[in-house]
Design a protein around this nucleic acid. Structure first.
Lengths: 197, 197
DNA sequence: TCACGGTGTAGACAGTGTCTACGCCGTTTG
DNA sequence: CAAACGGCGTAGACACTGTCTACACCGTGA
């Protein structure tokens, strides 16, 4: 921590600010202020505000990947069960760390190319595709099923986060929606949920 | 058009600017400039920038609702077919009018309450729910299936628009993803797609 | 004719991201 | 040892943003 250079400190402080105050709070100048440097200092490491935000978002992707890998390692071997665990981790991450998730999927960030999206999210997507391929022979190619499933999870996360789905469906938690999503794309769970009771 | 008051003009000009230049271009001052008034003028009708944006987004919702109603009126009576038409209109709208769609689903707008989301999108959601209820007896309640389907369409629209799905799946158009989404949530189409050939 | 109220103007203010010129300080080099 | 250098951070400027406030204009009603 003591040998933390300014670059790492900016990403860390910015991330903390994001997680605490939300996505509207992470201006370049405010991050610099909290890091104890002048507003021009970040420019040495991040030529642009967007590039600093990209580094913070990137941290979010790696955090999520770590969460997912840990959960999958502890999950049963059945691919369908693993997919359920993955989906749960995804939604939990989006809800618990709303600001981070919003930043990670900001359109201008994703389109800027700064994220290096190929390097970060593509392995995750391939993981998803592999699990889908193992879990279920489908008329559609696994990549298509995985893409549709990912889109469904993303939509669920966003719509749930800003309350549209509670408003529309009257649900108090996203569990039923998540269950319906998984069943729709992957079929019913291999071992029924009441097996835990 | 001649008797267009400033309020309507601001919404129209702002909408045109949005559709032409994208979501980053619609600052309050730029809209005022293009409407030919001073930067303080909008304040008389929209106390806040966000409220002007809400009016523009609201216009988008009503446009989409009109499109959807027209398409559904011309569609076959079969509920499953109607749902396919609805989904196609949804995705087309999101792709063709990307900036408008992005604005309509901006988190700070949706959370602000200015949109009057209940009045605008709830009827659309109920329409979706009714069609789902007619189309398919499902173990999940229709509202849940409709919610999951809506989330899937939204996720598809966003991920497709910023290129993540082309990158991940290699698809050149979202048709296969849309088809997979519909089949997942609603089962196979009643009349197979090759009936048109 | 005059007062008034609604409408739009214009300037100020704090805040933002970016750019540029300038100091500081440790390292390397002569 | 002294001097030049280069990386790092500072500080001020600039254009732009959204918001607030005081002020003109102008048609309408008293």
């Amino acid at each position: 921590m003591a040998d933390e250079d300014l670059r790492a400190r900016l990403v860390r402080v910015g991330g903390e600010l994001l997680d605490q105050e939300g996505i509207a709070a992470i201006s370049l100048r405010e991050i610099a202020r909290r890091a104890g440097v002048s507003h021009g200092a970040p420019r040495r490491y991040f030529p642009t505000h967007l590039e600093l935000l990209s580094a913070i978002a990137r941290e979010g992707f790696t955090d999520f990947a770590a969460r997912a890998e840990a959960a999958l390692a502890a999950a049963p071997a059945d691919p369908r069960a693993k997919l359920g665990v993955f989906a749960r981790v995804y939604l939990d991450f989006a809800v618990e760390r709303r600001g981070r998730y919003e930043l990670m999927f900001r359109h201008d960030l994703l389109r800027s190319g700064y994220l290096g999206l190929r390097d970060i999210s593509l392995p995750l997507f391939h993981l998803l595709t592999d699990l889908v391929a193992q879990a279920r022979p489908s008329p559609s190619p696994p990549a298509i099923v995985a893409g549709a499933l990912w889109a469904n999870l993303h939509g669920l996360a966003e719509l749930w986060n800003w309350g549209s789905l509670t408003l529309a469906t009257g649900a108090t938690d996203p569990d039923a929606l998540l269950e319906a999503t998984l069943t729709a794309h992957l079929g019913p769970p291999t071992s029924p949920p009441e097996a835990t009771a």
